[in-house]
Design a protein around this nucleic acid. Sequence first.
DNA 1: AAAGCCGTTTGACCGAGATCAAGCCGCGGA
DNA 2: TCCGCGGCTTGATCTCGGTCAAACGGCTTT
Lengths: 237, 237
Amino acid sequence: MKIKVNPFDELRSAYLFAQTSDAQLTALTRAMHEVKLVAGDSLFTHGQPADRFFLVRSGQIKLFRVSPEGQEKIIEIIQPSQTFAEAVMFMGTQARYPVNAQAVTDSRLYAFDQKQFLAILAESTEVCLGLLASMSRRLHILVNQIESLTLQNATYRLVMYLLDQAPKETGEHSEIDLTTPKNVIASKLAIQPETFSRILAKLKRRGLIEVQGNHISLRDLRGLRDLAYTSTPDDAA
Amino acid sequence: MKIKVNPFDELRSAYLFAQTSDAQLTALTRAMHEVKLVAGDSLFTHGQPADRFFLVRSGQIKLFRVSPEGQEKIIEIIQPSQTFAEAVMFMGTQARYPVNAQAVTDSRLYAFDQKQFLAILAESTEVCLGLLASMSRRLHILVNQIESLTLQNATYRLVMYLLDQAPKETGEHSEIDLTTPKNVIASKLAIQPETFSRILAKLKRRGLIEVQGNHISLRDLRGLRDLAYTSTPDDAA
DNA sequence: AAAGCCGTTTGACCGAGATCAAGCCGCGGA
DNA sequence: TCCGCGGCTTGATCTCGGTCAAACGGCTTT
């Protein structure tokens, strides 16, 4: 027994295209091409002219900025079924990518031509509204990031990340696997790898989590949540 | 001699409405009402249901988050002719404001009804594209904020703020007036008022600026730019 | 003119997290 | 099986910026 697969299902799995009609997707696919990257490959760099945006089919892409001293700060890690850089398509005359994009793992993407995309937008209000919604969510996420960078400490950010990774079942206990190298997560949370490691060790000492490589057991979800909101800097075992 | 003023000029001064037709603006104004705030008045709070967005006609509105401890972090200070909270209109079912909004000084605003606005969007691609462009810019600004919060120090942020306030003439010397209380600027830059004051004092000691209350003379633009990019923490007079 | 008040400045101290520097461990290649 | 590399951990130390506290100065109020 064979399951029938709509060729557009993969595109529609992306928020951005969820509401787009077959006809429009057909038009879009004409100016779409496939991109394959191996881990470490750069896709585009900060300041480079932006003439296309992307949908991740598999793998992970990190969007980041680099400081003059070479420090890397990851703004976002793009997962399969997510699009990115679509917001840049509206920066008007000679748009430029505001960040660097690089593959964390081997990845397959679709690239969409800016002109083609703008043409579709111009004739479809639904696509427009979908895009507005997706940008609105992203805006909100960035505001939350700014809040936690400025009003919360490193432990809070890390704990929130862990809780966010956990499935939202209601138990007091949960298991997660880090799908991303620890140093990459650290950069996303704006923490040094050493500090990241130390915070994990602290949580372990307190019996809140257990760590075996990339696998982490959250032993006490309530305790973790409490910690995040009170954030005792105290370190004693 | 009297200058003829289009009643919509004020609206069109906002990026968002720059391309909107008279007919659409007419429709919009039907569901628009005026709002007056005195300094310190709250307009809306974080988490409150969002059913309208705003255009600042005069005054200043700060958008901010508050930490559990009561610390305030200003995300943005909205100036006359700028709109805000329009992005929230797309957060779907039961949108909520993601920040608090409060008047820094006495202010006059226009408030626009969400439904009316969405109706106009649905029938005008130009307005849609204008909105996309404006959200795209805001997105970019937030990314830049995240970068400077994570990859740059307080001195960098403050110097960049000063340089940003200065008119872009090419001289080596420039005068600026802070239109916003120093503690508000400090919060926007994620710096404590004490530190803000100390950094200004340091810049003064080095002969880069002169300060008289809210008036600041930038005596050495090149020096300031250099400082921002090298950012010697060194403090000696 | 004195008294508050509020935003700002200055001083002394502290601490979260960065930096520098070793070790450790798991994994792939020879 | 051993080696070597890269990511992770742990320890020692440093520092930027925060915190607490007090004084200052320009206002408005009485």
